[in-house]
Amino acid sequence: MMEIGLTHYLVLSTVLFSIGLLGVMRRKNLLMLFFATEILLNAVNVGFAAISHYYNDLTGQMFAFFIIAIAASEVAVGLGLLIAWYKRHGNINLDAMSSMRG
């Protein structure tokens, strides 16, 4: 039976981060884009918790908790903006946001 070590967690974290990054770049729907940023931040949480356990040092878990709090407040602001945008324009498509160019 293979032991699951730090490396596995870090690889998982990196893969999740890449998925999130891909989502941020490719998604045109604003709501999906917010999901992608959540994946981005939670991928880092996995890594922090694993490293914290590896070093037997609580700083990393503390960081992870703060990231959770920040992710939550970010979504609160983001959804507020999204609703305000939807009320005006009736869609949440990123491609529709192109009144400014140059």
Binding site: L21, V24, L40, V44, G47, V77, L81, L82, M97, S99
Partner: peptide, 23 residues
């Protein structure tokens, strides 16, 4: 609103980068 949403998406991405870099 458009400006805020654009800034927000970029800022969220930057937050992800910062967290990953610190990790």
């Amino acid at each position: 609103f458009e400006a805020a949403v654009k800034y927000f998406t970029m800022g969220a991405l930057a937050a992800g980068f910062f967290a990953f870099g610190s990790m």
